[in-house]
């Protein structure tokens, strides 16, 4: 099926099997292999990308569902020559080891920070009607959809914190 998806700002015309997931379209068709396949079932978060600015698991979505959508992958966040502030923070804080979950963590964190800015609640939010304070517990809960088996969790919190500021 013919589908056009704007990926990292570029319109990409695809002709995909309806079965092709957004993740496999990115990895196998567009050769954007930064988004990772850790479980293929929405249970790890390694495939997290931003669709129209919102973080989702790209493994649990079909490419054909995204005709006309704006997708941002890790390749659109920054480059080796010009790391984004969050990428630099992950490097500085050693917020990864094997690196396989890292693109998903970074994309997830970008989406998460927008959700906080939009005052979306989490299960750590005690006052549902007030302004969200991004405490460490809020940050941890909101990043729990991204498993890191190397368990760089404290370092990931530190990296995101260094970009997000103190309990924004």
């Amino acid at each position: 099926m013919k589908t056009t998806i704007t990926v990292n700002g570029q319109a990409r015309a695809l002709d995909v099997d309806p079965r092709t997931t957004l993740l496999d379209a990115l990895r196998e068709h567009l050769r954007l292999t930064g988004s990772k396949k850790g479980c293929d079932h929405g249970q790890c978060g390694a495939c997290t990308v931003l669709v129209n600015g919102v973080r989702i698991n790209s493994c649990l979505s079909l490419a054909v569902m995204h005709d006309g959508d704006q997708v941002t992958t890790i390749e659109g966040v920054g480059t080796v020559e010009k790391l984004s502030p969050l990428q630099q923070a992950f490097l500085t804080e050693d917020a990864f080891q094997c690196g396989y979950c890292t693109p998903g963590q970074i994309c997830s964190a970008l989406g998460m920070l927008q959700e906080v800015a939009d005052n979306w609640p989490s299960q750590e939010t005690a006052d549902l009607t007030g302004k969200i304070r991004l405490t460490d517990d809020e940050l941890r809960e909101r990043m729990s959809g991204n498993i890191c088996r190397c368990s760089a969790y404290p370092q990931i919190v530190a990296a995101i914190r260094s970009v997000a500021g103190d309990a924004a």
Binding site: G34, E75, Q87, F96, T102, I106
Partner: peptide, 12 residues
Amino acid sequence: DRYEGPLKVTGT
């Protein structure tokens, strides 16, 4: 910082 870190944080 990790030698290969820039590649890992950019997904490359």
